[in-house]
Design a protein around this nucleic acid. Structure first.
Lengths: 141, 141
DNA sequence: GTTAAACTTGACTATTTTAGTAAGGTATAT
DNA sequence: ATATACCTTACTAAAATAGTCAAGTTTAAC
């Protein structure tokens, strides 16, 4: 069970932006250098973030990306869903008519995984970008 | 972010055993049939569970596996660590001397992922096999 | 108006992980 | 004896991940 880099990088990059003034756009090149993430990969990620209105882009030279809202208003769950990072514990939900393993009832651990998903999503719903940059003067990049 | 089948199957199989009398061994063949898990795959999983003393084996015909403890004493975290299912959110912990991305300080989201890991592990520490089989007369396999 | 920095898009690919399968053992209750 | 059950090692197809590559378009600034 692990987090993919897509979700991690998205959060890292947005936290990077959040550390700066909201009005001037931050270029992906700068983020790439500061965070050590491939520029081309960042472009993929930001394409999704823009489509999901987490950021807006400013084109042209000295362009870049700006957060659409205050960091406090951007929940981590919003970011993860934007880049298709999902918490997935069971694959027995689709065939809701027939139950989990093709049998007529739910598998014995079904409720457990549901609870786990809720537990994790709860965490992501409670955390926002603002929480991450509060200690921005500390020993963090 | 998802759970692998190894962890899921281990919990399912152990919950299956927990539903029965503790004294008579349950064969993998029966579990395989009831839970719809490949017998050969179950053997791999139970090999690890046995080495980690979650179950003990009884050989010979009408043999099988028995839980080493009461279901209430077997935490899900024990099961997951036995089958190498780990919660992994960051890969920036090994090089503790140099920081996360080879730089001298921690990455901006480092603490976040630590918190998440704790949050999830907390869940697995609180749940035990007994919790799963309590409602064993309900509509579950 | 040119230019260069920056974003946009779509296709492609190597590596790794997952989810098993296959084959051939060994132990033991009946 | 022998069938049932566990044990071990090796192998592999498929999927997901983590990017790269190439060829654009847009626009601020000079």
């Amino acid at each position: 069970m692990k987090l993919t880099t897509k979700g991690r990088y998205a959060v890292m990059a947005l936290a990077d932006i959040a550390k700066f003034d909201r009005n001037s756009p931050i270029s992906l090149r700068d983020i790439s250098l500061r965070q050590g993430i491939s520029l081309l990969y960042l472009e993929q990620i930001f394409s999704k973030l823009r489509k999901n209105e987490i950021v807006k882009s400013v084109r042209g030279s000295s362009g870049g990306y700006i957060l659409t809202k205050n960091p406090e208003q951007i929940k981590l769950s919003n970011i993860f869903s934007a880049v298709d990072e999902k918490v997935k514990t069971v694959n027995c939900k689709k065939e809701s008519k027939k139950g989990c393993n093709g049998k007529s009832s739910k598998c014995i651990t079904h409720n457990l995984w549901d609870e786990l998903e809720l537990h994790i999503n709860d965490f992501f719903n409670k955390k926002n970008l603002g929480d991450l940059v509060k200690g921005k003067n500390e020993n963090t990049i």
